[in-house]
Design a protein around this nucleic acid. Structure first.
Lengths: 338, 338
DNA sequence: CTGAAAGCGCTTACAG
DNA sequence: CTGAAAGCGCTTACAG
């Protein structure tokens, strides 16, 4: 049933029905109630494509994931939160996956040109990110999950990666550790740079040298954690503590530590950053894992909120948040072995 | 730039331009080439909402995830595959997350009434699933990831859950195990029932009793695996082997086994079903994990393919596939202890 | 092979 | 507070 039929059926004009359903103020309350009730009863819903064409709004926001690897557990938690929030306002999420950087740029061009989305969410930004320049040129509104450097301000939500790693590192030095390793994420992303900077700064502040053999980069997978930890342990002076960038890396690191015949929390302390996955809790590991934690699902919800406000015209420089990261000490960290 | 402007700019009618861009046959090849080149050069793309309104097609398929828990690592892998395939045909994916069963039904009604999607993907079906009845009533085309019982045929892609667990169980009995435990998924889903049936049938075929204390159900999380395994081990006659429904459950089970002072693959054999996650490989575990495996990403791609064929009018009874599951023996299974 | 025009189902400025 | 009508930007039956 379309608007014309429905309006005829209840004896009102299309105009009034449309206004009643869209919540416009100038409709008499009784009229609105009657329209809403009838729509529910007769099952009338405005055709979304017609609505979009008429208003010029797409009613959807876009998100692009690059490569198989990047659509992992973090993505799904984030998406869960985002979707929960946008659902409430009837905004759709349009998911694209691409292989390369060029494909991602092409995807953004396509989204912009065909007016498929009202805004996009950019994630895992690099320190200087060409995508930001592109989105600006395309006049496609965007919000960044993470931070980046750019001349003009833009909307973003990030967590305090610097603070997280600073706290973690400081906790370890306080426990007497002097050889600390870091399993970081990919090299170009801002978050990895921030974590690296925090790690270096804190070691320096404690008068400890940075041993390049004790830092490694890679995807947040079990395998990378395992491989890097094995390399650390094989170095001439193995670490007595390690900070892992994610729960996945931590699982791999834990195994490497055990295989080496060492005990986590006793011979080697371990801290992981935890995005809070419902299916993998640091409390369940043995020993329970000390973590810096920040729920990525909540970040998704918040970004959904922010993108809606942006579309309502709120200025981007009021849409900038940095979330503190919680630090939870559990059994995987202990005094440095004598 | 819209069609009118663009057509004027290159001196052709809107009709011809539209036909050239949509790949209709009746356009002269040179004309088409000229149109396509100009579109590329001038950056013209049809407005997607107008296109959808005019054709009556939404150009999108929907997928609904129920509850936070269900949008986990399996979902993201599946979505990655699905998106990869649909992208090629310019079909969008519309993701919704809901809390309850009623919300899910409401979401389907909304998608259907507002013509937001051309079809939906239904996943994790129960043996008799009310959602199938609903989608039929709504005349919303659908394809099921999994199987279900229904009078009329419908499109689906499932893996051979029965065969997988049969093979796994048989492998264990062949190794001399007589007390085998099963960590299964939620109770109402078809896949869990199939796995349970295979487990029972194989034990029976080997003349082994089924001990209810050695089977458990729950979400595919580390925690559930851990908790169930601890319970199994605490039973009067603990198992010498266990089959876990997912990699997450297996991680928890492994830990419970180790905490009990037992060795995986020696004291207790372990087999897991693996959906093949890029960030968590059974080869990396210690010992490497024997698995029944089936890549859920590939299933996502295939379902994308099938849904496109369905929308092109292919009959649903030719869109039914059951994939065999691969069995890979690694170090986590060994002879039953004497 | 190409074009003029109706129609898809909404929204909204304008008029009352 | 309500309505008649133009317009959003496409597609496509019909005519040539």
């Amino acid at each position: 049933m379309n608007l014309k039929e429905f309006a005829a059926r209840i004896g009102l004009s299309q105009t009034t029905v449309s206004r009643a359903m869209s919540g416009y103020p100038e409709v008499k309350p009784e009229t609105r109630a009657r329209v809403l009730e009838a729509a529910e009863r007769l099952g009338y819903r405005p055709n979304i494509s017609a609505q979009r064409l008429a208003t010029g709004r797409a009613g959807a926001i876009g998100i692009v994931f690059q490569g198989g690897g990047r659509f992992g557990p973090h993505s799904s938690e984030f998406m869960g939160g985002l979707s929960t929030r946008l659902q409430k306002d009837g905004i759709d999420i349009l998911v694209s996956t691409v292989e390369t950087e060029e494909d991602e740029a092409a995807a953004f061009r396509r989204l912009a040109a065909s007016k498929r989305v009202d805004a996009v969410i950019l994630h895992t930004p690099a320190c200087t990110d060409a995508r930001i320049t592109l989105l600006r040129a395309l006049r496609l509104p965007f919000i960044v999950h993470g931070r980046s450097e750019a001349k003009k301000p833009f909307a973003y939500l990030d967590i305090d990666n610097f603070g997280a790693i600073e706290t973690a590192t400081r906790h370890l030095t306080d426990l007497g550790h002097r050889r600390i390793a870091l399993i970081n994420g990919d090299t170009i992303s801002t978050y990895a740079r921030d974590r690296d900077a925090a790690f270096r700064a804190t070691l320096a502040a404690c008068g400890l040298p940075l041993d390049p053999a004790l830092t490694g980069h890679g995807e947040f997978t079990d395998e990378t954690g395992f491989r890097l930890m094995q390399a650390f342990l094989a170095s001439p002076e193995p670490p007595t503590a390690v900070i892992a960038g994610s729960m996945m890396s931590a699982l791999g690191a834990m195994r490497a530590i055990r295989i080496a015949g060492l005990a986590v929390g006793h011979d080697v302390s371990l801290i992981a950053h935890d995005d809070v996955f419902p299916y993998l809790s640091p409390d369940n590991l043995v020993p329970a894992l000390t973590t810096t934690q920040s729920p990525i699902r909540a970040a998704g919800e918040r970004i959904g909120d922010m993108v809606l406000r942006m579309l309502q015209g709120e200025a981007v420089d009021t849409l900038q948040e940095v979330w503190p990261v919680e630090f939870v000490v559990r059994g995987s960290t202990g005094p440095a072995p004598a």
